[in-house]
Nucleic acid binder design. Structure first.
Lengths: 168, 168
DNA sequence: ATGTATTAGTTGTTGTTACAAGTAATGTAT
DNA sequence: ATACATTACTTGTAACAACAACTAATACAT
């Protein structure tokens, strides 16, 4: 049979397909938007910013690498490389954890704190202008609900959803 | 109503902040999900799949590089590198455009067509299981509307919004 | 105590992406 | 016809991420 009518994206009804195509476009464009603003204004990738932001909100501005990696949705190897570079730039300081000598604590330095503080307003403005303000309050609430729904499936460790994960 | 406060993520009210944190997590996790399924089952990145899929739907299974780059939300350099690799793998064939000798046409080969056809069902199943099925029909419609709203700001060329956007 | 498995993290390799620079064809104005 | 700008694309380089392999500490079982 000629498959010309059935495109490579099948199995979704027209409404679902349309929603998906728009959603993928958003998902592909948002990271670049965040990265380029932060890179331009603060010489940080979005991931680096997120790492610093999580540390800045932690007690003592300090977290274990493992905890930090799950808070930033990243693998431990990726985090390790990034924290190493941040340490070389003087924004973070690593030290062995006293209670468990396998573990490493990552702490924000004073300079790191200052960098996050300076980067935050521009970042928040970008988020507001590009994501929050274009939506109604109702849509923001819908996006929250939808994201939570998706994270139940997507989030490997379910750390954002206090529910028992299905077998893995 | 703008607020200037000291923590890294501020200037958003609690509802907005919560929605944003969940949404970023989704945006960070979805590409990895698509990539790993396609990589595992079809040895393609999601971007490569998308390039092949766009070609497979084009008249003659052929597109100009520039057109293809905007359809895939990518820069021309990025597309050029990817198409070069796809050509080396025999999935795409490039040829100079007869009417404009600056331009290059990228065409899907028979093998490329076969590869997309084989990859499609698994990809669609992943999308359905992880994005569409967790949502109600109403939420899918909401996601569509929200994505469109965001693309008006995000999509530089508005190529996904054929109709005139609301007056801005 | 000793051996094994698990956890925590780092490092190396390989491939991809972004950015900037370069080439070539085309359009436009004089 | 010549000069200049623009468009279309390619290529080189440097940063980044994914994956796998590695080291070291801890937990558990006998």
């Amino acid at each position: 049979m000629d498959t010309h009518e059935t495109a490579p994206v099948q199995g979704l009804n027209p409404a679902q397909l349309h929603a998906w195509m728009r959603f993928v476009a958003v998902v592909e464009l948002v990271p670049g938007l965040l990265d380029s603003q932060l890179q331009r204004d603060s010489a940080l990738s979005h991931f680096e910013y997120y790492v610093l932001a999580m540390l800045s909100e932690a007690p003592n501005r300090t977290l274990r690498m493992t905890g930090l990696s799950s808070m930033t949705n990243s693998s431990l190897p990726r985090l390790s490389h990034v924290v190493k570079r941040l340490e070389e730039r003087g924004l973070v300081k690593r030290s062995p954890c006293p209670t468990d000598r396998r573990a490493t604590n990552a702490a924000l330095t004073e300079e790191g704190w200052a960098v996050v503080q300076e980067a935050a307003p521009g970042h928040v403005r970008t988020v507001r202008e590009n994501v929050i303000d274009p939506l109604t309050d109702e849509q923001v609430a819908q996006l929250d609900a939808i994201s939570n729904q998706l994270l139940m499936k997507l989030d490997p460790t379910n750390r954002l959803n206090p529910r028992a994960p299905e077998g893995a």
